[in-house]
Amino acid sequence: MSIESFGNWLYETPLSTSIREVTWIIPSVQSVHLLSIAIVVGSALVSDLRLAGVLATDESPATVVRRYLPWMWIALIVLLLTGIVMLIAEPGRTLGNTVFWAKMALVLFAFALTLFFRKPLLDPAFALEHASWRGAVKPAAWISLVVWVAVIFCGRWIAYT
């Protein structure tokens, strides 16, 4: 089955039809999606700028990351769930859209950066200054910020391509 015929099949399913027919669902789901991306951006801004050595440098990176990482995971789960609802309702808008797939690749990349560079900091026994990859922390923080910005731009452009 091609991705296009899968999209057409999904579009015809009762679930997809009912999401579209109840007119308040899509605007509400999009609003929640937008609020969640704001939580990710806020958390990423503070955490990445701390790891880049720009903001709140008198607090340890571990303290900063520990405060924001749980918020980020929750927001990412909400983004995934609301994103799935939008995809089920309007598969034609996303599945055949290059910008959508670019966005998904960027999200995965940002997720991998977050997992690799921040999750180790949650372990109290972990010392960043002894890690072999400590030199990569600053560039990775800047890359992470740029990637989240690109995710937002792709998200808005899905509607126009």
């Binding site: 937008l34 609020l35 991306i37 704001a38 939580i39 990710v40 951006v41 806020g42 958390s43 801004l45 503070v46 701390r50 709140a56 607090e59 303290t63 900063v64 405060r67 924001y68 910005v149 937002i152 731009f153 998200g155 808005r156 452009w157």
Partner: peptide, 28 residues
């Protein structure tokens, strides 16, 4: 797109301060 990016930054940063005012700890 730029408008959406700006709004996520406004809401994201304000949210951190508002939650602190409500008693949720932030990075300091």
């Amino acid at each position: 797109s730029l408008h959406v990016l700006a709004i996520t930054l406004v809401f994201g940063t304000i949210c951190i301060v508002d939650l602190r005012l409500l008693g949720y700890r932030a990075h300091r």
